[in-house]
């Protein structure tokens, strides 16, 4: 694990992170002490059987939830010490999310969906429009700006969701089963897109998936079993420069 001593400070560092849901006799420990370092620029896939704690880990990594015990350092920020609003600001400035179910606003154009995060950043109208158009272009949806989710295919909707996640130029893109609702052809297209974003823009990508063929796109595969990291494999082919 400590095979990259040259990288001084990892972007993300989990230490002995546990997560317990519920209280008393109903308590359930979904994470049982996870250590994980993620350097900037990596494309990492989290795999594992259902119920092994993948989503729980991703939610903590995405600052949507705090760990029960243990520490989470994001750059020089101790995330476990942050309040709810401080975590929201961290998400706003550094993170982008892609969900399995797309989660676009219905009856709202692709353009307006993509603009949404910028609205919370208080960006000016002109800047917002330009950035949203550019993000849509990056995911190959130029010309589809004014279509609503109902008028787009599943693959296109997920592209809009990706555009929404990257429009703020986040450091990290977190995706929970982004291809889970797509056929395999569409799934591969989405993966190509994610690989390109990781390669060309250096966005760190953390993706949960249970499909090995999708995980194969990642440079590193972390496998969870029963709330613990079971294996952590770096693909040799992607280690070098490209």
């Amino acid at each position: 694990m400590k095979d990259t001593p040259d990288r001084a400070v990892p972007l993300i560092s989990l230490r002995a992170v546990t997560k317990t849901y519920g209280k008393g006799s109903a308590a359930f420990q979904a994470l049982k002490g996870v250590d994980l370092d993620i350097p900037q620029g990596q494309f990492i896939a989290i795999m594992g059987p259902s119920g092994s704690g993948k989503s729980t880990a991703l939610n903590i990594l995405g600052c949507l939830d705090g760990p029960t015990t243990g520490s989470y350092q994001f750059r020089d920020i101790q995330v476990e010490e942050l309040t709810r609003n401080q975590r929201a600001l961290l998400r706003r400035h550094y993170l982008g999310f892609v969900f399995q179910g797309f989660n676009l606003l219905s009856r709202t154009s692709a353009q307006e969906n993509v603009e949404l995060p910028l609205l919370y950043r208080g960006a000016e109208t002109k800047v917002r429009h330009a950035a949203a158009r550019e993000a849509l272009a990056q995911v190959g949806l130029t010309g589809w700006e004014h279509h609503t989710p109902g008028e787009l295919s599943g693959g296109q909707q997920q592209r809009v969701a990706i555009a929404r996640a990257i429009v703020t130029r986040p450091l990290v893109l977190l995706a929970d089963e982004p291809t889970g609702n797509l056929d395999s052809q569409r799934g591969h297209e989405i993966m190509d897109l994610l690989v390109a974003l990781n390669r060309d823009q250096g966005i760190t990508i953390i993706m949960v998936t249970h499909e090995p063929e999708m995980a194969a796109y990642a440079g590193r595969v972390v496998k969870f079993v029963d709330g613990l990291v079971d294996s952590d494999v770096h693909a040799i082919e992607q280690k070098g420069d490209r």
Binding site: G62, N85, A88, R92, F99, G101, P117, R164
Partner: peptide, 16 residues
């Protein structure tokens, strides 16, 4: 609810 979830996830503050 899901829409609100998205807004919160992308960094909307409670008071917003």
């Amino acid at each position: 609810t899901r829409e609100i979830g998205v807004r919160l996830a992308i960094g909307a503050l409670e008071h917003e």
